[in-house]
Every structure is written in C-alpha cells, then in structure tokens.
C-alpha cells in the first residue's frame, strides 16, 4: 500500500492529520523556493547570459550586428579596433577613469560623512531622528536632479563664476597672476573662472550624490559605539584627535571599508554626472557602453563586452575588499 493510497480515502471524512498539514507546508515551502529561483533566474541570470552571448556577437559595418562567436570586441577593448595596424588604449583609459572617479568620490564621501555621523550620534534621539529623516528624504532626489542643481551652481551667469566676477575675486586673481595658473589647470577661460568641465566638478557631484548613503551606512556602527570608551580615554589624558585615531576609528574600521566598497560599486555605473561635468578625455566605461548600445552605430556586442569587463572589475574589487576585511577582522 502506497502512502498516497493510505491518505486519500481519509481526506473525505476525517480532519487533516498533522503529517498532512506538514506535507502541505513543505509543498508550499518548495513552491516558494521554486518561485524565488525562477525570479532569480529570469531577472538576473538570463539577462546576464544574454549580455555574455551578445558580447561575442559580430558587428556589421553600416548596419547592426549579428550573432556570432568572436573575441574581437574584447580585443578592441584592450587595443582598439584597428589593431594590429594601430593600437589605442582609449577604452582602458575609460575603465581607469571609471575606477578613479568611483574610488575618489566614495572615499571623500565616507571620510567627510564619518565626523558628521559621529557628531550626529552624540545628539539627542529626537535630533538624530530628524537628521535621519532629512537624509532619507534627500535620497529621493535622482542623479539627474542633483546634477542639474550643481550645473546651475557652477554655471557662468548663475553660479560661482558669477560670484567670483561680482565680488572682484576674478580681478584679484588676474592681478595676482593666479588666474593664469587656473587657466593652466583648465579652471578658467580668458573671461572668468570656469568649473565645467572639470574633474573637480565630477568628483564633487559624485560624492555629493552618495553622501547620504555614507551617513546611513555608518550610522548603525557609530551609534552602537559605547561613549564611555571615548570618555575613559579622555579622562586618561588623551587629546580628542588621539581618541578619534586610537579608539573610534579602529572600532568602525569594518563599516568604513564596507561603506567605501558599496559606494564604489554604486558609482562605477555613474552616467549623468560624468556626461555633464567630465571632459571627454576623462569619460568612463559606462558612458562608452551607452554610446555603443544606444548610439548610431548600434554596436551592442561591443557595448556588452565593455559591460562584462566593468562587471568583472567590480567583482575583483569586491573580492579584494572582502579579503581585506577578513584580514583586518582576524588581526583585530
């Protein structure tokens, strides 16, 4: 006699037995697991597989592209389309700028958010709550909106350059010779200072963009920090800087590293700030991906190859970060 044959007649008249209910729960659990896997498969793995497959596709000059199996998109990323006749590191340079902006902006954001968050956690609970609500609310501003705002702040007739000119600072700079230095740095034209396009504006906007995230990421660790540790150090005669360096920083080392890594990955795909504020010589892989996939050449394979490389780079950085945090945890 099978189990099914045993249960079925009982189902009509008898109340469900405990094992039957358990079976039903297990079926439900299985269904949910299956559903989750389907979602992961459809939303993550299938698109990723598609990108991988497209990245080995073949570009047709003057038209679109077709399925294929070629490494030329990856080779182009390393040495350019004209290789071996000619070599260019254009795309590697773009990858370098992706990294550079993401690293610099995320470090600046975390480093400036740290003292702010620390001071915030020393406030009353009500003040903390207000700050957190305010910061969470600013997250609703999109990248486009923030870039637009900085665009206006840095513009010639409506922003900082106007203040420079109106306050006489521009004339002063011209009189003292600093203006020529700024022109050499690309931060001035013959008429006035200019902040667009510049690496300064790009990094500024990117770190501004992720700054609230940095605070929110650091907040839990800093608010759990026992104030008596710092007080003890102070009573033993340590100066505030020594307290920060020897007590607070070591205690939040891991959250700091985690925050930098997360913001780094987030900024790696930044697009709007770079297109608006960066000189084309300092554009990133994300911009190039967009141009090739959506631009007039319809070169989706090369765009896909670039995104695969960007993805691999991000993964490498995450693995290194993970290693670092494990070593530091072991050492601490």
């Amino acid at each position: 006699m099978t189990v099914v044959g045993h249960i079925r007649p009982a189902a009509d008249d008898a109340p469900p037995r405990p094992e039957r209910a358990a079976l039903r729960w297990r079926a439900l659990g299985l269904a949910i697991t299956l559903l989750l896997w389907t979602v992961v498969l459809v939303l993550c793995l299938v698109p990723l597989a598609l990108v991988l497959v497209i990245s080995v596709g073949q570009k047709v000059e003057g038209a679109g592209w077709e399925w294929g199996f070629t490494a030329e998109n990856y080779i182009r990323f390393l040495v350019g389309a004209q290789w071996p006749a000619e070599t260019t590191f254009l795309y590697l340079t773009q990858l370098y700028w992706s990294m550079r902006y993401a690293v610099v902006a995320s470090v600046i954001a975390v480093v400036t958010a740290l003292p702010f968050t620390y001071l915030m956690t020393r406030q009353s609970r009500r003040a903390q709550a207000l700050w957190l609500v305010f910061l969470l609310a600013t997250l609703s501003l999109s990248e486009v909106f923030i870039v637009m705002g900085w665009d206006i702040i840095l513009s010639n007739n409506s922003g900082l350059p106007m203040l420079f000119a109106a306050s006489g600072l521009t004339d002063w700079l011209k009189a003292t010779g600093w203006f020529d230095v700024l022109r050499d740095w690309g931060l001035a034209n013959p008429r006035n200072v200019k902040f667009k396009t510049s690496e300064f504006a790009t990094v500024l906007t990117m770190s501004y963009l992720v700054w609230p995230y940095a605070v929110i990421l650091l907040y839990p660790a800093l608010s759990r920090l026992d104030p008596s540790l710092a007080e003890a150090a102070r009573t033993m005669g340590a100066r505030p800087w020594t307290v920060a360096r020897t007590v607070i920083l070591p205690a939040v080392r891991l959250p700091l590293l985690g925050a930098v890594l997360l913001l780094f990955v987030f900024l790696l795909g930044g697009y709007v700030a770079v297109t608006v504020f960066a000189d084309p010589a300092k554009h990133t892989t994300a911009v190039s991906v967009y141009e090739h996939v959506r631009g007039s050449t319809l070169n989706a394979p090369f765009g896909a190859a670039q995104s695969v490389i960007l993805l691999v780079t991000a993964a490498v950085f995450l693995v290194i970060g993970h290693r670092l945090s494990r070593t530091s945890r072991g050492g601490g």
């Binding site: 003057g62 254009l90 084309p280």
Partner: peptide, 19 residues
C-alpha cells in the same frame, strides 16, 4: 559615416579624448 562607422567613431573618440 556608415561604411566606416567603427573606424570613424573610434578615430574621432580618440581625438576627442586625446588618447
């Protein structure tokens, strides 16, 4: 622009980027 699109785009992008 169509027959040599990869060539012109890359040469132009290189020029603009100074690479």
């Amino acid at each position: 622009y169509l027959d040599k699109e990869t060539f012109i785009k890359e040469a132009w992008d290189k020029m603009v980027a100074g690479a």
